[in-house]
Write a protein that binds this DNA or RNA. Structure first.
Lengths: 165, 165
DNA sequence: CCTTAGTGCTTCGGATTCGAAGCAGTACGG
DNA sequence: CCGTACTGCTTCGAATCCGAAGCACTAAGG
C-alpha cells in the first residue's frame, strides 16, 4: 500500500490488449469451427486432445483439469457428457481408491482424428497465415516463458482448502 | 477437399499451445483478482474499461459487443446487471430509435478507477515481470497483426442473418 | 405511400461454469 | 489401532452464456 501503482507503458498495454483480443477472437472462431464440423465444444476438444497426447490416453481427473486449466467440478460435468457419448471411460484408480482415471476410448480417438484436420486448417487460416515463421517462433518462445511463470506462482488448481493460519 | 490437410510444424503447435495456456491461466488469475478486489467479473471490467476508453464514455450495444467480442444477448444481460448497480445507463439513441446507447456513469468511473490499479499490478506480477521489454514489444507487434487479420475475415458479430442464396 | 428486406436489441430455453460444501479414501502421529 | 488432517471427486445452487426466434424501427424500391 505504501507503493504507488506500478506504472504501465503504452507498449505493455498495447501488448495486453492485443493478446486479449486475439485470445477472444481465436477462441470464438475455433469454437465455431469445432461445433460446425463435429459435435464438440472447445473444452471437450481440449480434453480429448490432452488425453490423446498423454502416454496411455489416460489421466487422473485432477491432472486433466490442471492441464486444460479447468475447474474440477466443470471437469466432472464434461467427463460425464463425454462418457455418455462413449468417447471416454471413467474408472477408479487401482492405486488410490479416491482417484478417477479418465481414459480415451477407440471411439474417442476416432472423433479426435476426424476433427483434428479441420482444426489445423482453421488455425492456419485464422492465425498462422498472417504471421511469418520467425514471428511464430518468437511468439512460442515468449509465451512459453510467460506460461512457465504463470504456472510457477499459482498452480491454478492448487491451494483449494487452505484455512490454516 | 482435394488438398490434403495443411501441415503444421512443431514450432507452430508449440506457439499455439503456449498461447492457449497463457490465455487460460491469465484469464483465470485476472478474474480472481478482479473478483477479490472489487465486485466485477472479467467481462464487466472489460465493458466498463471499453466504455471509459471511448470518446464520451458511451457506445451502442452492438459496437460494445464487437469490441469485447461478446454475444449480443450476453451483453444485454450484463448491461442490465451493470445498470442495476448504477454503473452505466441505457437509453435509446436519438438518431436511430432502434439503437441503445450505453453510457458510463460517474459511479461507473469511480469503480473503474478503484479497480484499475490492482488490475495493473496483477498484470505486472503475472505477465510482464517474466518478459523483457523487447519481448513485450514483439508480442504486441505480432499479436496486433494477428488481431487485424482475425478482425478482417469474420467480424464476429457480423453475418447474423444471412439466409440468402 | 406500401411492401420487402435489413438492422438492433431483447426474450427465451438450454447448456455450461464455478465455488462451496459434502462424501470417501489415505497418510500420520501417538 | 484411533483421531486428525489432507486429498480427490462429486453434488448442489446460482450465475453466465449463447443461439434462435421475436419485436420494433429504418431503408429501398416501385
Amino acid at each position: 500500500m505504501t507503493r504507488n501503482t506500478a506504472e504501465v507503458t503504452p507498449t505493455q498495454l498495447q501488448a495486453y490488449f492485443a493478446f486479449t483480443e486475439v485470445s477472444s477472437l481465436l477462441r470464438h472462431a475455433v469454437e465455431k469451427q469445432l461445433r460446425d464440423a463435429g459435435e464438440l465444444s472447445y473444452v471437450q476438444f481440449q480434453l480429448l486432445a490432452t488425453l490423446g497426447d498423454s502416454p496411455d490416453g489416460r489421466l487422473r481427473m485432477t491432472d486433466l483439469a490442471d492441464r486444460v486449466v479447468y475447474s474440477r467440478s466443470g471437469l466432472t460435468y464434461q467427463a460425464q457428457v463425454l462418457e455418455g457419448r462413449g468417447l471416454v471411460t471413467r474408472a477408479p484408480s487401482p492405486d488410490d481408491e479416491r482417484s478417477v482415471v479418465v481414459a480415451l476410448t477407440p471411439a474417442g480417438r476416432d472423433v479426435l482424428a476426424a476433427v483434428f484436420p479441420g482444426h489445423i486448417d482453421a488455425l492456419h487460416r485464422l492465425l498462422f497465415s498472417s504471421l511469418t515463421d520467425a514471428d511464430i517462433a518468437d511468439l512460442g518462445r515468449i509465451l512459453q516463458r510467460a506460461a512457465d511463470h504463470l504456472r510457477a506462482d499459482p498452480p491454478r488448481s492448487a491451494a483449494p482448502r487452505r484455512r490454516k493460519a
